[in-house]
């Protein structure tokens, strides 16, 4: 069991929180400036000598080119946004590559309207997958008919398109406690799309071995 491997969803939360802080800081700053101007220059508050009204009836707005201190804001926000994206790339590489160590490979075939799972030993199940706890699982995802998207809502970032003729893969680390996860289709695939829900039962490794050997 590969306990030292960082699960992709942990990296997802890390990245999300970084973006959230960036967005909140910049968004709050811009909103405060906006609110300040909106109140400060309201005609009922602004003193006559403070307002410089240059446009009015019978005029056309000129092409102003002064940019003043906004250029710095632009450079700063530009750098922040680009850095935020570039900073995600090493994590993206990690998440997108095959897992450092794979304990289990599951073949997933999406169809209208359900999921077929195949274990390495050839055992096939429909809609209910049993997985051991604390395990790195790689899903190999294909579709039998239309465009589906395989996703586990409980694990952030555990989602990949299931497209006919294309083999996509995705890896996750299962939770360390036994429990139940959902498998949900994230791309409208027809009349039964809403009901295309599978289950993942996360069980102890011993129970899993017993399940795998059962017929």
């Amino acid at each position: 069991m590969a306990l030292q491997i960082t699960p992709p969803d942990e990296l997802w939360w890390l990245t999300f929180n970084q973006f959230l802080i960036g967005a909140l800081v910049l968004g709050t700053f811009v909103s405060l400036v906006f609110a300040y101007f909106a109140i400060r220059y309201w005609e009922k508050r602004v003193k006559p000598n403070e307002a410089e009204v240059v446009l009015g009836p019978g005029k056309v707005a000129p092409g102003t080119s002064k940019i003043g201190w906004t250029r710095y804001t632009l450079v700063v926000t530009g750098i922040i946004v680009t850095l935020l994206i570039l900073a995600t790339f090493p994590r993206t590489d990690y998440v997108e590559a095959s897992p450092p160590e794979t304990d289990l490979v599951i073949w997933v075939t999406a169809f209208q309207f359900g999921w077929e799972f195949e274990y390495p030993n050839g055992k096939k199940v429909v809609n209910t997958l049993v997985l051991p706890t604390d395990t790195v699982v790689e899903f190999k995802v294909v579709s039998r008919d239309v465009f589906h998207a395989f996703g586990i809502p409980e694990i952030k970032g555990a989602k990949i398109d299931a497209i006919p003729g294309i083999l996509n893969s995705l890896w996750v680390k299962t939770p360390s406690d036994p429990g139940e996860l959902n498998v949900v289709c994230y791309e409208l695939c027809g009349v039964g799309h809403s009901l295309m829900v599978g289950k993942i039962k996360v069980v102890s490794p011993e129970e899993f071995q017993a399940f795998l050997q059962s017929s």
Partner: peptide, 25 residues
């Protein structure tokens, strides 16, 4: 304008491949 700030800021999140995996659909 504030609606644009909210909609625009959340758009930047979608640009990150790793985050988009959770957002998509």
């Amino acid at each position: 304008i504030p609606l644009f700030i909210i909609g625009g800021a959340t758009g930047v999140f979608n640009a990150a491949i790793i985050l988009d995996r959770a957002f998509r659909g």
